[in-house]
């Protein structure tokens, strides 16, 4: 299938959903700006209220194990080496060598050039390899470079591609440009023959989108263009994932399913460091999107230090004594 036909498919589907004969920037703008606005104060208050839920004992134990299994264990540093990626993969396979009943994480998330190393290190474990492509984190490169970047990671064996949207284009209202980029990257995630396609996660970088209305619009735009997952942030911009933003994205995937019958995953990334934060997110997932999203297939945490805190909490529940950072690995 040529790239033309695939993006044409995406366009056709978008036309159906929008109910227009030609997918123009104007049509997309009209549709996205026709979405109901987000009550900012209300969203913050609702997220804060859900954050006060008390999750204890067996529910807490379940939440901790579920959260561990949802982690995309991430290292995205300029100083990454093959050795560091391998040790990250070791941790992903066996998060806690002293307690082998600890679940594995969902995936390791690395830069493109480390995909092959990670692929080899997690082979046969069920842990996926996610690669950040498309000139991560800024996304400031030509589409040709972004597509080549994506294909490179797919060929190296990435199971999941985390792409960034062009926030500049989005904020200046060039929605069709963003749509087409996502659709083309989606196409680049395809593999020939029976090999499964790479899952596409679309990073909205909500910290740069300024308003909750924009977060909602970007979520819908990404889903319209064929995202398998929508992800809050790169982790390189502050603020990263906040509870209200994740909530708004969860509302979007819920409403998207009501509209199209398709499920899309959500991945908050960056800034979630404590078990308490993670559990708050799980509460919001359950209350806003529903129980179906409470699996690693539909909800992920992009994090690195979160795993250690979850492990410490797990120790505390198992032994009844507070644990400390001496009892988990640093990376």
């Amino acid at each position: 299938m040529s790239s033309q036909t695939v993006t044409a498919e995406a366009t056709e589907r978008a036309r159906d959903i929008l109910g227009v004969t030609r997918l123009t920037n104007q049509a997309l703008s009209g549709w996205l700006h026709g979405l109901p606005g987000v009550d900012e104060v209300g969203a913050d208050a609702r997220a804060a209220t859900l954050g006060t839920r008390s999750i204890k004992t067996t529910a807490k134990a379940w939440a901790i194990d579920t959260a561990i299994s949802m982690i995309d264990l991430t290292t995205l540093e300029g100083a990454d080496t093959a050795g560091k990626v391998r040790s990250l993969c070791t941790k992903a396979r066996t998060p806690d060598p002293a307690h082998l009943d600890t679940p594995r994480v969902a995936a390791v998330c690395v830069y493109n050039d480390m995909v092959a190393v990670a692929r080899e290190a997690v082979a046969g474990t069920g842990v996926n390899v996610a690669a950040v492509s498309t000139a991560f984190p800024s996304g400031r490169a030509s589409i040709a470079v972004k597509l080549a970047d994506t294909r490179d990671a797919v060929e190296a064996g990435a199971d999941e591609i985390d792409m960034v949207i062009d926030r500049g284009a989005f904020l200046s209202g060039r929605y069709l440009h963003v749509f087409e980029e996502i659709a083309q990257v989606r196409q680049a995630c395809r593999r020939d023959g029976d090999a499964p396609d790479a899952h596409l996660k679309v990073i909205l970088e909500t910290g740069e989108l300024v308003t909750y209305d924009n977060v909602r619009r970007a979520s819908w735009l990404a889903m319209l263009a064929g995202a398998d997952f929508i992800k809050t942030s790169t982790g390189k911009v502050s603020p990263a994932a906040t509870l209200p933003v994740t909530m708004i994205m969860l509302e979007a995937v819920r409403d998207w399913r009501a509209l199209t019958g398709e499920m899309v995953g959500v991945k908050p990334a960056g800034g979630i460091r404590s078990s308490k934060d993670a559990i708050r997110h799980l509460v919001v997932v359950n209350e806003v999107a529903g129980e179906e999203w409470l699996t690693p297939q539909w909800f992920r945490f992009g994090a690195s230090s979160l795993l250690n805190d979850l492990l410490l909490q797990r120790h505390k529940l198992a032994t009844g004594a507070y644990s400390g950072p001496d009892y988990v690995t640093i990376d």
């Binding site: 120790h315 507070y322 400390g324 950072p325």
Partner: peptide, 9 residues
């Protein structure tokens, strides 16, 4: 007792 059993003390 919580301080006595705390592994980071």
């Amino acid at each position: 007792p919580w301080l006595a059993s705390h592994l980071d003390v």
